[in-house]
């Protein structure tokens, strides 16, 4: 497993306030799962991936792969493969040359798998990647990553530029990789739908910190959209907060208050029992709703209107 223990990374250049790109991140990624990194622009997703594969050295904390420190450690790095969001350097090469390069640098690289995937994706092997379309390039480098046969495959913006059909294909390829080889895949994306459809675990990041992580259903289950109906005066947000509810969203419709709160159904029921309202509805949030709520809670996306 990949273990991050209180990892901090600060970029000092042009950063007089020394804002941390990663701020005390602790995370464990086990084998055989698909993790989705979800976050806003600048949340630290790419930095986290680069730190996990040993490109960046943590300023504080440690990153270990199966117990081995990853920084400047070929044995540990051999188990981790990153396909970043920037791969212009690879575009100078044809697929055949890419294969030769990765065969030389990655101990587990399988040329056969790469060829098979390139054929399955109908990508030419003798043309430079720079002559490919954006989506084709993404497919080619994803195939490259899968062919590395690493225990941990890290994909930054994996679905960027792919059409819906190809997203499905890539998703299947990654699922096969997890099923067949027991590998773990970590995807980063802004696309909540993509994460919720592709991953079984999610990490929600903001400003270098992890806000939520765990299985997607479990994370969604930590929130509820409730409807509170009262006779006469509609219950206010303050009254709800005073009752101990962690209110993330609040809107009024007639004599009913629609509220987004943190907590399980049991916790919410217990806290609203004393209020002069009846709880008419309490449904879990979707991942997108959770994401938007968390971002709003942290002051991001202030133009998102409350429903």
């Amino acid at each position: 497993m990949i273990e991050l223990d209180r990892v901090t990374k600060i970029f000092t250049s042009d950063n007089p306030l020394k804002i941390a790109a990663l701020d005390g991140i602790s995370l464990t990624i086990p084998e055989g799962c698909v993790y989705g990194l979800l976050g806003t622009n600048g949340a630290g997703k790419s930095t986290l991936l680069r730190t996990m594969c040993g490109i960046y050295r943590p300023d504080e904390g440690s990153v270990t792969v199966d117990g081995r420190e990853v920084w400047n450690n070929p044995e540990a790095k051999a188990d981790v493969c990153l396909i970043g969001d920037e791969f212009a350097w690879l575009e100078k090469m044809s697929a055949n040359r890419l294969k030769a390069y990765y065969r030389c640098t990655r101990p587990g690289f399988s040329g056969e798998v790469f060829d098979r995937l390139m054929e399955a994706l109908a990508l030419p092997k003798n043309r430079k990647l720079s002559t490919f379309s954006k989506g084709m390039r993404r497919q080619a480098v994803t195939a490259l990553g899968v062919a590395c046969r690493a225990k941990y495959l890290l994909l930054d913006e994996a679905f960027e530029g792919l059409d819906p059909a190809m997203r499905r294909v890539v998703r299947e390829i990654l699922a096969d990789e997890v099923c067949d080889n027991g590998a773990s895949v970590v995807l980063s994306s802004h696309d909540v739908t993509e994460i919720s459809e592709s991953c079984d675990h999610v990490v929600i990041m903001y400003a270098g910190k992890i806000l939520q992580f765990g299985e997607i259903d479990e994370v969604c289950d930590r929130y509820r959209k409730i409807q509170l109906v009262s006779e006469g005066k509609v219950i206010t947000r303050e009254e709800l907060a005073n009752a101990g509810l962690s209110v993330l969203g609040y809107s009024v419709m007639g004599n009913a208050a629609q509220v987004l709160v943190r907590g399980t159904e049991e916790e919410i029921t217990a806290k609203t029992a004393a209020l002069p309202v009846s709880l008419t509805d309490a449904v879990p949030l979707t991942l997108e709703e959770v994401f938007v709520c968390e971002m709003k809670e942290n002051g991001y996306g202030i133009y998102i209107k409350e429903e």
Binding site: G54, I55, K77, G84, E86, A88, W89
Partner: peptide, 20 residues
Amino acid sequence: FADTYDASARDIQLSQPIRA
């Protein structure tokens, strides 16, 4: 030394299992 000024070269070269 493209990896010292080109982010894409850096991502690819520094993520390979090779000592600095």
